[in-house]
Amino acid sequence: MSRGFFRIIGSLMVLGIVGLWVLVRPTESRRITRTLEALAKEASFRPGEGQLRRLARVESFANAFTEDAVIHFETLGIPPAQLSGRDEIRSLAGAIQILQGGMDVQLFDPVVTLGPAEDTARVYLTASASSGKQEAFTAQEFEFRLVRRDGTWRIRELNTVKTLRR
């Protein structure tokens, strides 16, 4: 095979390694995104999951929030709700887990802005949730305010954001 062939293959490999490094190198923004992806995973569940697994999910979901976390939730077709503190969040997560059809939560297009000391962050993202074949909400924007405590990012505030102002 010609030298040109090996040159091209070598260049592609170098480009691939550099690209991979850019994609996976650990940054605070990436850690936050991973935290939120894990949260979506814990909020999702399949019908017929065991009770212990569900309890573990609820605990893990609640632990993603600070003790004094606040959630303001307002979206189409669901009455506005406010939750204060990890206990209330845990109760709601537990109540959702009894839905018969399971729940699938997906997050899209996170935009992460870190605070000056990189110990606070604000994240805007779009989420969708469906239970069985029914959409609970699609394309709902959220604002997450996070704080880093002991090296772990936790959610201090979660608000729904209206894409269209009324």
Partner: peptide
């Protein structure tokens, strides 16, 4: 088409 935080989910109005 109206974007949300990105282009994965768009509103059509």
């Amino acid at each position: 088409a109206i974007r949300t935080t990105g282009f994965h989910n768009l509103l059509l109005k």
